[in-house]
Amino acid sequence: MSALSHGGIRRHVRSYIGVFAALAVLTLVTVAVSNLRLAFFFAIAAALLIAVVKASLVAGFFMHLAFERVIIFVLLFFTFLFFLALLILPALS
């Protein structure tokens, strides 16, 4: 919050509308892609890729992660490492 001036907040607000439009479009895209009935591997890859892009928009702009301090990134970096370990390793066992 300390980084945001009154003028800066207006710029942020303008970006929110753009992000919202992108998210809405991507939602429709992901449904459309699923209707294509791709091979399973490509279906997952496409769905996850679009989801990651949407998530990055929400995290980056709505949660201000794009403007956040290093300490938060360090916390999230390790969290995601452990998240990936939990997600992948049991299925490989």
């Binding site: 390793l89 490989l92 066992s93």
Partner: peptide, 24 residues
């Protein structure tokens, strides 16, 4: 602290995991 997240299946050696996972 970091490594402790990556060792858990050593409690599960006898559950039939493959040799690669066991080695990991």
């Amino acid at each position: 602290g970091f490594m402790s997240f990556l060792v858990w299946a050593h409690h599960m050696y006898l559950t039939g995991m493959g040799t690669k996972m066991s080695a990991f």
